[in-house]
Structures are given as C-alpha cells and as structure tokens.
Amino acid sequence: MTFVDLTFFVCAAIAIYAGWRVFRTDSMVRASFFLLISFIAVGIIMLLLAAVYLGVALFFMMAVEMMVMALFMMMFMMNPAGLNPMNMVHQEKVAMGIGIAAFVALSGVAVFGDFPSRPVPDGLDPVVSLGKELLGNSMLVFESAGVTLLATMIGVVAMTSHRGRFGEANEGSVPPGLEPGGDPAGKPQENDQKQQGHHHHH
C-alpha cells in the first residue's frame, strides 16, 4: 500500500464518517462543520487525483459556504452550543431506505460497470488545461454560470430584503383585511402561530 493509497483510505473514511455525523449531531453549527470536514476530505482526495485547482477551490468554496451556514444557524437560534438534543426528522425509515438503495445501486454500477482505463497523461498540466477550457471552448458555459450567479445575487437580495421597490417585501402576499386595517382573512389564530414558532425546539 503506497502513501497515496493510505491517504485516500483515511480521507475516504473521514469524508463518509463526517458526512454521517452531519445528521447525527445535536447542534446545527457542529453539523455544518462536520459537512465542511467531509468536503475537505474530498478536496484532499481530489488533490491526490492531480486535480490541483479543484481540490484547493473546494477548500475555500466550502469554508466560506459552511461558515455562512453556521452564521445563519446562529442568527436563527443563538444557542451557543448544542445543549438540547436535536433530532428533527420525518419519514426516517423511508429516507434511510432511499439512502441505502441509492448506495447499493450506485456501488453496483461502480463494481459491475465496465469503465475504460484512460488515466491523465503525464505531460498534462491540469490547471492550465482547465484554464484554457474555461476561457476557450467552454467560455459560454463558464460565462452563463457567472451570469446565473449574478442573477442569483440580485434575486436573493430582493427576496430577503425587508423593503421592496414598492413597499414592504411581503406586501400582497398577505390577504387583505376583512375590514380596513383589520386582521387579514384566513390568518391563523395567534395561538397556532406561537405553536409553529416553538415547534423546532421540541
């Protein structure tokens, strides 16, 4: 067993274990960092596969993403650490079945599938070839991704903002009142709403 193989097996084990822990920990902040660990392990495997840019890009992309995720968790529940047990699941058996079925099916493809063996040629510089591809033949794809990201940014800001261009962001999404200035029609009772708000702390 070479050094590369050893690193691969360690990283693969870490990636899978951390991925599993994401859904088995009592704090969402911890969950997002477990996910980050899983991504970093996959990034290291990519480095082993000579995808030098992708592996490193995965580090910073995911570090920022998971940081933002953790920050959101903090905003919504500023519970400094997971002191309460947290298990908020539905249809767990079905979900587990789907997960296992997908794993078995995909592994079956991996084991029984017939893939050609054409490794990366020795002289190839993966970073240069990726750069040439991005800004050459696949420029359109790359630019579309860029434009989509820009559109996402604008859309997201518009969606989350408190005030829209024509007043409150959620204006119109609330039915008009039964009488001028009154409660909207079909609004749930105050009690119901409280219940919903508390729901996730069970």
Partner: peptide, 22 residues
C-alpha cells in the same frame, strides 16, 4: 473504490435530504 465512496456520500446525502425537517 472512488465511486463507492462517492456512492456512500450520495446515499447519506439522500437520507438527510429526505429525512430532515429543518
């Protein structure tokens, strides 16, 4: 081995996406 690891990640991810409420 790479694909099996990937399959495991996808399987766990599917479990999470289907089972989690939050």
């Amino acid at each position: 081995s790479l694909l099996i690891v990937a399959a495991a990640l996808i399987g766990i991810g599917l479990y999470g996406a289907f089972s989690q409420q939050s």
